[in-house]
Design a protein around this nucleic acid. Structure first.
Lengths: 234, 234
DNA sequence: TAATTGCACATTGTATACAAAAACGGAGTA
DNA sequence: TACTCCGTTTTTGTATACAATGTGCAATTA
């Protein structure tokens, strides 16, 4: 192999190698270091990461079930391609789940969580002033994590995390556009207000709008990206 | 080991052994042959199924990500315990997804699918007359599969399948009770009518009621089961 | 008797070896 | 040139070997 990919083992001490490899490969896929359609060859990865084939294979089994890689029989694993259709599918589900999250949060949020949420919303507004996209992204995640936590539903959390990963590489898209920042701040405020007032309908509506806007930005971005690239896979 | 579990390799020809093992173990867990908390010891399973440890381990990695087994570090895998809380979490999510399915099916179902759905509803009614629970279960699954297919959302299908598995062993509970059969038939009819008339609100409502009734039956069953058993795990 | 140490064994974690199938390439032929 | 056949190589699929860690039991000691 001529190319030297720029990823290395993510050392999380005392985790089994398979999990270390799993996290490493997952991050590489989600950040785009491993590109859609790229083959994952076991010996190659094993040499690159300095482990044997066994942990590599076990990590690939998990990535397979997570949908990040697809297996071609007797050929091995390759990074899953993300079509516009599959992204729309994901967003369709996320919309429903985000509405559920908003609804549950309304009835279950505690006083402390509510004040944390207020702070997180303020933090987000402050972050949009810094113009640093990754700071903004962190603040956005923090805000939504609090709402997620308030639902008290672990399974829901797990599912949404998994779905969120599928669109990870597009997260920055809708945060980079400064003209949208004030709108995002307003949307967060609406969500906060609705939850505070225990107004289920308003909370769900606000969550829906929030996702809709993300969807528009992401789809637009993908179309652009596709126009500039080669063919049918994004 | 003194006990002889009654499961054998499910032979699906030309699938890699790891997938055969995966299906075998999954079915064993879902049907209760492998009980919650039971340890999955690699050599034991390997001998029992007549393969080496490698496919066993790879199958376990997938079951792990699916949530059917949990790993205890340096101790190995054991069948996940299902608490009432986690089941409620699952059902809460399923309710939202089933409403989404109903909504999408309303707007996207084709003429053929609609007539298939009519037939499936009739088949279900017929099945309830046979008194054979597994026949009824099959008919129920067939009915819901058609609606699922009509949504055209693969990701949604995948998620719901996974969630459904978590409650698989309780599926029979709400189908065994004959007194509920006429109600189930009515519920299916309501769902069919709503979808046929493209009445989104009614379809979602009907789906919600359908799940609510399942939830009640399952929770009641679990409480009974728990009362008759030992301790805190179901 | 109760506690503790140490050893043997059981079990997982990781690496390697072997088998089989598919991909590749080159020689030969029309 | 285009095409096919055949062997070589690469790569996955499966099995086994080795390492490391935990667990239980017995023997020893206070």
């Amino acid at each position: 192999m001529d190319m030297t990919e720029d990823f290395n083992l993510i050392m999380e001490d005392f985790l089994p190698l398979r999990d270390v490899v799993f996290n490493t490969l997952r991050r590489a896929i989600l950040t785009g270091t491993l590109k859609p359609g790229e083959r994952l060859m076991e010996v190659h990865l094993a040499n690159k990461l300095g482990v044997s084939r066994t942990p590599i294979r076990e990590a690939i089994r998990k990535l397979e079930l997570e949908g990040l890689v697809v297996m071609v029989p007797r050929k091995g694993a390759e990074v899953a391609k993300i079509s516009e259709k599959s992204l729309k599918d994901v967003l369709e589900v996320r919309r429903a789940l985000d509405e559920l999250i908003a609804k549950l949060a309304c009835s279950r949020i505690t006083r402390e969580q509510l004040s944390e949420l207020r702070e997180a919303a303020d933090e987000f507004e402050k972050a949009t002033k810094t113009e640093d996209t990754s700071t903004i992204a962190r603040a956005d995640i923090a805000f939504h994590d609090i709402i997620m936590e308030a639902t008290g539903n672990l399974r829901l959390k797990q599912l949404v995390n998994n779905l969120a990963e599928q669109m990870y590489r597009y997260r920055f898209v809708y945060l980079k556009d400064e003209s949208k920042h004030s709108m995002l701040v307003k949307e967060h405020s609406r969500i906060y207000d609705a939850i505070k007032n225990n107004d289920t309908e308003a909370a769900m509506e606000a969550a829906r709008i929030h996702i809709d806007n993300q969807e528009k930005a992401i789809i637009a971005h993908i179309r652009m990206e596709r126009a500039g690239e080669d063919k049918d896979s994004i």
